[in-house]
C-alpha cells in the first residue's frame, strides 16, 4: 500500500465533524505572533483537549485578525474540533471594542462552558472585560488545570507572590468560566497533520475605537528599577575575569548588573550596586553569580532569590551550596559559550 493512499484514507477519517447546534464546549481565543498562531494558544488548545476529553465536550478555536483564515488549520491540527474565524481589516491590530463585540456575540450564541485566553497583553484585557460582561468568573495566569467532576468546574492554579506558592481556585456556578493561560506553563500539544476541517466565518461590525494610538513614545524611558526590586540580576565577583562579558550577559537577558564587594573594589560597579547583607538584599526571580565566591554576607543577601545560577572556578566556593545550579568553570571561558547558547 503506498503512502499517498494511506494519507487519503487517514485524511478522510480525520475530517473533524462538529456537533450540530453547538452549545457548551471549551473555547480558546487565539493570539497571533508574527503572522502565525502563538505557542501559548496551541498550549491552551492542548490543555483544553485533555479537559474536554474527560468532560465529553468539544474544543473550539477562535481566530480574529486580517487575512487569518488560513491559520485555522494550525488550530485543527493542535486538537480543535471547530474553528470560528473573524476576518476583517478592522481586526488587523488589537482593537478592544471590536474584538469584544465579536467575541461577546459569539459566546452569547454558543454558551461555552469555559473560555481560555493566553495570558498575553491582549488575552488579559479581553478576558477581564468579557468575564464582567457575561457574568463569568476569571482566573488569570493559570499554570495548571484539573477538573472537578461534580460541578464540571475547572480548577486552576495560579502563582502567588511570583511563584512562591500556588493558589487553587474554581468557578463552580457561573458560566462561562474564563481563564488566562500562562505562556510556557502547559506542554505543546501533539500536532496531528491529518486533522483538518472547514472553519465557520463570523460577521464583523467594526466599532470606532475609543483609544487611539498616536505613535511611538520617543524619548520615553521607564524609571530605573532599584536593585532590591529587580527581576533578574547578573552579579560579578573577583573571579569574573572579563566584566564586559558580564554586562553583555545582563543585556542579553534584560537584567541588571550588580556585584559583590570584590567587584566594587575592582572598580567594575558602584557601591549602590553591591549585593551584600550590609548594603542591599535582593529578591529577583533569577540571580546569576559570576565569579562570586559567596561569603556569608553575600549569600544571606540573595536568600530570597527564586533561582540562583553560580559560575566559579573553585569547586569549594560556598556560593555552590546556595545555588540551584552551579558551574565549576572559569567565567571567562564559559560566558561566551553561554551567550552563544542563549541566542
Amino acid at each position: 500500500m503506498d503512502a499517498s493512499y494511506l494519507d487519503l484514507l487517514m485524511a478522510q477519517q480525520e475530517e473533524v465533524a462538529e456537533a450540530e447546534g453547538g452549545g457548551g464546549g471549551i473555547w480558546v481565543v487565539a493570539d497571533l505572533v508574527d503572522g502565525g498562531v502563538a505557542p501559548v494558544t496551541l498550549e491552551a488548545i492542548g490543555a483544553a483537549r485533555n479537559l474536554a476529553d474527560s468532560l465529553g465536550a468539544y474544543v473550539y478555536g477562535v481566530l480574529l485578525g486580517d487575512g487569518v483564515a488560513d491559520l485555522a488549520l494550525a488550530l485543527y491540527q493542535a486538537g480543535a474540533d471547530g474553528v470560528r474565524v473573524a476576518d476583517h481589516p478592522a481586526l488587523a491590530s488589537f482593537a478592544a471594542e471590536t474584538y469584544l463585540a465579536v467575541l461577546a456575540d459569539l459566546f452569547a450564541a454558543e454558551q461555552p462552558e469555559a473560555v481560555l485566553f493566553g495570558a498575553t497583553d491582549m488575552g488579559q484585557q479581553l478576558a477581564a472585560r468579557l468575564a464582567q460582561r457575561m457574568g463569568g468568573g476569571l482566573i488569570e495566569h493559570t499554570v495548571a488545570l484539573s477538573l472537578d467532576e461534580a460541578t464540571r468546574a475547572l480548577q486552576a492554579s495560579f502563582p502567588v507572590y511570583g511563584g512562591e506558592y500556588f493558589e487553587i481556585a474554581a468557578c463552580p456556578q457561573a458560566r462561562p468560566q474564563f481563564l488566562t493561560v500562562e505562556p510556557g506553563a502547559f506542554a505543546a500539544p501533539f500536532i496531528d497533520p491529518y486533522r483538518q476541517g472547514s472553519p465557520t466565518m463570523l460577521d464583523v461590525t467594526p466599532l470606532e475605537p475609543a483609544v487611539r494610538r498616536v505613535g511611538e513614545a520617543d524619548g520615553f524611558a521607564p524609571p530605573p528599577v532599584p536593585l532590591n526590586r529587580a527581576r533578574l540580576i547578573v552579579a560579578a565577583g573577583r573571579q569574573a575575569g572579563d566584566f564586559a562579558l558580564v554586562e553583555r550577559l545582563a543585556a542579553a537577558l534584560g537584567g541588571q548588573v550588580a556585584g559583590d564587594r570584590g567587584a566594587r573594589d575592582a572598580g567594575w560597579i558602584e557601591s549602590g550596586q553591591v549585593v551584600d547583607l550590609r548594603s542591599a538584599t535582593v529578591a529577583p526571580d533569577v540571580y546569576l553569580a559570576v565569579g562570586i565566591r559567596g561569603d556569608t554576607f553575600h549569600n544571606a543577601a540573595i536568600e530570597q532569590a527564586r533561582f540562583i545560577l553560580a559560575i566559579h572556578p573553585d569547586p569549594q566556593a560556598p556560593i555552590f551550596e546556595v545555588a540551584d545550579l552551579g558551574l565549576e568553570a572559569d567565567p571567562q571561558q564559559v560566558l561566551p559559550l553561554l551567550l552563544q547558547a542563549l541566542e
Binding site: 457574568g135 463569568g136 468568573g137 482566573i139 495548571a144 472537578d148 480548577q155 492554579s157 511563584g163 506558592y165 500556588f166 493558589e167 487553587i168 481556585a169 474554581a170 468557578c171 463552580p172 456556578q173 457561573a174 540562583i308 551550596e321 546556595v322 545555588a323 540551584d324
Partner: peptide
Amino acid sequence: LLERRGQEFPPERER
C-alpha cells in the same frame, strides 16, 4: 463567583 480550593507548593528547592 470564585471559590478558593486550596494551595499548592512547588517541590522543595534542591540546592
